[in-house]
Nucleic acid binder design. Structure first.
Lengths: 251, 251
DNA sequence: GCGTCGCAATGTGTATCCACTATTGGATTG
DNA sequence: CAATCCAATAGTGGATACACATTGCGACGC
């Protein structure tokens, strides 16, 4: 038996989309750089058609821009963009916290508290990538309690866009200091359904990161162009995708 | 002389996207209905390729869903979805108002006040479609003062998704009553940079609409399936796109 | 030496073609 | 008569082919 069926992938676009998104999340496309469709297609073993469809999705996700007759370009990176994203995130999480206080059950709240406890204590506390993951899950969990699908999907989209910077942000001493206490405070307010204070903490908590946008962006640029010493996603010195163009030219 | 060049459209996708989006905004696709690619393609005079790319974008915009090997489906319509959208909108506009107080100049604020005055008084006050347009412009204008690109584009996306319901919402007596006074109040707070009170009004102002989601959705469904007596976008009794499938079958 | 024109190479835009999947209507069987 | 299986058809998934736009480079003229 041949497993299941190899006749038609039927979800090439999804696979291509996932692959490209992963690259884009980690800024493996250099900011502002033109993306070559045929190169991507051959590199992924598919034709240009699914690649273009996936790129179209990524445009909508904010990872690519598009210029007719010129093609797709990787997202740029400016401190303002990073700050804007954090501000929007703060707005959504604040509102979601309010709704979570109204709609979340005690059990659901305890579940989130437990997840954070597990994730944050069971691993090496210096593995910042893991901490960032736990942080993302914690915040997303609260927003899920709001039961507002739009807020959830918006936050997920934002999370993808800022994941690269979140890791950097959480590595800075300044952020580490407050993280655990602030999360405890949020959970505490959630338990007591203290909307006013909880909103305050959530907003402050995220705005803090927003304020560091410039430094975080600077560090991010350095990692993109000079390698990424602390990043878990680094690929043993692998160059950004586009560097391969040269090779093709010389071949 | 043929204008410029008719050799290649070069932006078929954009045109198709705009056309389909306009249909989707007005719920000219019946909720949940499967969208036929070939039919759309022939009806728009292009091939399936740009249609699929446009549909992919619309998926990202929230107007379509997609099932592999089955195709694209028009967005569904539930009161919960409408409410979720309004809640998210309230969250963004509240935060944007705060930023607008900090970042907007006096001139910019007066410009928005003027635009609202013009739009809301120069036309027949019973042309609710126009009122809805002015309302949308007013709110978007304030968010633009926040200078937060993410908030602006998110709000634009939300506006497209709720435009159909906004018209309905503004037709109800209950909403009309408060609209002008609330907008004046918002402008007033903006002028005085009264963040606390302004946020309050903005949030309330939008939450009011959120609370009517069920009625608005009901009315919306009625218009989608039984015609749309008050809508400015009605096409002289034209049927929804998909009705044409039958014709093709009988031909 | 410098600017400009034009041509060639690279790459995007989209139509079309074929493979495969889902669906539907009808025939067959319990 | 109802449920199920099968075949025909409609429709999607993706690769390819070709037309056109852009761009870079070299030749030519100034």
């Amino acid at each position: 038996m041949k497993a299941k069926k190899t006749g038609r992938p039927a979800d090439s676009v999804d696979k291509v989309y996932d692959a490209l998104k992963e690259l884009a999340v980690d800024y493996r496309f250099r900011p502002g750089e033109r993306v070559n469709e045929v190169e991507l297609a051959t590199s992924l073993g598919v034709s240009r058609t699914p690649v273009r469809e996936a790129l179209n999705r990524l445009v909508r996700d904010g990872f690519m821009s598009f210029v007719p007759n010129r093609g797709f370009y990787a997202r740029d990176i400016t401190p303002q963009d990073v700050q804007d994203l954090y501000e929007l995130r703060a707005a959504i999480e604040r509102a979601a916290f309010k709704l979570a206080c109204e709609r979340g059950t005690d059990e659901e709240i305890e579940a989130i508290a437990a997840i954070w406890q597990n994730n944050s204590t069971s691993h090496d506390a210096t593995d910042w990538a893991r901490v960032a993951e736990a942080d993302e899950a914690f915040h997303l969990g609260i927003v899920q309690l709001s039961a507002n699908k739009q807020m959830i999907s918006s936050l997920e989209a934002i999370n993808s866009l800022i994941r690269f910077f979140r890791r950097i942000d959480l590595e800075s001493q300044r952020r580490r200091a407050g993280l655990y206490g602030e999360h405890d405070g949020i959970i505490d307010c959630l338990r007591r359904r203290d909307v006013a204070k909880g909103c305050e903490i959530v907003e402050q908590h995220i705005t803090l990161s927003s304020a560091h946008a410039i430094e975080v962006t600077k560090e991010g640029l350095a990692r993109i162009f000079f390698g990424r010493p602390g990043s878990p996603a680094r690929m043993a010195g692998q160059q950004p995708i586009a560097a391969r163009r040269k090779k093709a030219a010389t071949g």
